Amino acid sequence: MEEISEKQLSILKVAERLFADQGFHGTSVRDIAQEADVNIAMISYYFGSKDKLLESIVKYRMKASQKFIQDLLVDDTMKPLDKIYAMIDRFINKMMGEQNFQCIMSREQLNSEKSPVRDLIWELKREMLGLMQPIVTDAQEAGIFHKDIDVVMLMTSLFGTIHQIIPAQKLLRNDPEFSDLDEATFKENLKQRLSIHLKKLFKAILTHEF
């Protein structure tokens, strides 16, 4: 999407939070306008409709990740496994830092009704996978990664594991091992554990080394 102004970004973030808390259909444009301290006409001017506002949220959140993968792909200074590690850390930080967006993504993808937003999410996901695949396939051709790798399942393991840990945080927080940690320290500890786990898993799959 095109560059957005601070006012547009403010509206996007308010809408994202309300869509996550109340659901898309449970949130009105009036609700968003009141929370963002703007008039309804301004939202209509910037985004056109509530559907287009949701589409803008999806595009905004996924655009930066696409750019990150594109830059990673052409970086000749990094080894393939280091690129994979960088991607793991990127998505751990992104997904755990954007939990409202992850909530919206889950709802829209599970929506049984055909919708432009659901179709947009899958289109952008296909584009993302298309960007990620060469990181693996180029290393396979160079003999660095093994040939017997299902790239789709590999990426599903990455996103699925991170996605699962988000709602599990409350359960893990009750573990006596973490009860004395403040919230920020707990989250950093959890990110580190997840990073170590996924890197070990991916190294084993890609190189057959543990």
Rank of each mutant, 00 (worst) to 15 (best):
Y46L: 12
E141V: 03
K170I: 07
G130Y: 06
L131P: 06
D119T: 10
S106A: 14
I196Y: 06
Q140F: 00
K52A: 10
T185N: 09
I32Y: 01
M42R: 13
D82T: 03
M95E: 09
G160K: 15
F19I: 13
Y45I: 10
C103S: 11
D182G: 03
M87L: 14
Q8W: 00
P116V: 08
R90D: 02
Q109Y: 06
H25P: 01
A20Y: 13
R118Y: 04
H208S: 03
R193M: 12
M155G: 02
V29H: 00
L12D: 03
E108C: 14
Y60K: 09
M128A: 10
I196M: 11
D148L: 06
L158Q: 08
E123C: 02
K63C: 06
M1Q: 12
R90K: 15
E2A: 09
E98P: 09
N93C: 05
L171G: 01
D180A: 11
L158N: 06
V152M: 08
W122M: 13
K187Y: 04
L190A: 05
K125F: 05
I40E: 07
L9Y: 12
E108A: 04
R118P: 12
W122H: 11
Q109H: 09
F202Q: 07
K191S: 06
S157H: 04
F68N: 09
N111M: 08
E2C: 01
F202A: 06
N100W: 05
D138F: 00
D75V: 06
M132C: 07
D71K: 15
H197N: 13
L9D: 03
W122P: 02
K170M: 08
L201V: 13
S49Q: 04
D175N: 15
F178E: 11
A168H: 15
D138N: 06
F91P: 02
L190M: 13
A64T: 08
F19Q: 07
G143S: 02
A20G: 04
L198D: 10
M128D: 08
H146R: 15
A86R: 14
F47V: 12
S65W: 02
Q140D: 05
I121M: 11
L154Y: 02
I166G: 09
V136M: 02
K191F: 02
I84V: 15
L172M: 15
L124N: 11
M128G: 01
